[in-house]
């Protein structure tokens, strides 16, 4: 069952990703990315990371990509304004081939020296992947980095405001 689910959603994720990088229309690209992210969220569930899966859907698919969509709409790009992005076939092909070769080599390496299965005899703690488990770690051991991320966000907000303000 799990194997089937993995292959289905892995295939969906790859298809979505390919759609993202191959589509001329940014709106289609964003929607394709949603597909990939959603598929990944399902894979997180398979990896017993339930909380992470929820966050993935809520924040990534729900918030960030909406922001993308909003920007694309705001800029109101027309297909004829995107003509520049077609063509240059050989260039793309070259990049693709190089990357595929590397990935192939990498995958071969991984498959040939199996590191072990995902459930390879590891005894999972009871609260693995739950909100409680993740938050305990987050608010005790990793409190300082967590707080620092809040500073990062504040800085980002200020930066965005500064950039946006200058145009007025």
């Amino acid at each position: 069952m799990e194997t089937v689910l993995f292959y289905i959603f892995a295939a969906l994720a790859v298809i979505g990703a390919m759609a993202v990088v191959s589509n001329t229309n940014p709106v289609t690209g964003v929607v394709s990315l949603v597909l990939t992210l959603f598929s990944t969220a399902v894979l997180f569930v398979l990896l017993i990371a339930h909380f992470i899966a929820v966050i993935q859907v809520l924040i990534y698919a729900g918030a960030i990509l909406v922001l993308f969509l909003f920007t694309v709409m705001f800029l109101n790009l027309r297909p004829e304004g995107l003509v520049f992005d077609v063509g240059r076939f050989y260039e793309k092909l070259g990049v693709l081939i190089i990357l595929m070769v590397v990935t192939g080599a990498f995958s071969m390496e991984l498959f040939s020296n199996s590191i072990g299965s995902a459930n390879g005899g590891t005894q999972l703690p009871e609260e693995f992947g739950t909100v409680e488990g993740v938050s305990r770690l987050l608010f005790t051991q990793y409190l300082l980095p967590f707080e620092l991320t809040s500073i990062l966000i504040i800085v980002a907000i200020l930066g965005v405001v500064a950039i946006a303000k200058r145009r007025v």
């Binding site: 799990e2 790859v14 398979l46 991984l110 299965s117 459930n119």
Partner: peptide, 20 residues
């Protein structure tokens, strides 16, 4: 759960390369 961890890693690599 029979899926080998390698599959996940390869999937991650493939997605990463597509993004790249």
């Amino acid at each position: 759960m029979n899926v080998d961890v390698t599959h996940y890693l390869v999937l991650g690599a493939v997605l990463f390369v597509i993004g790249g």
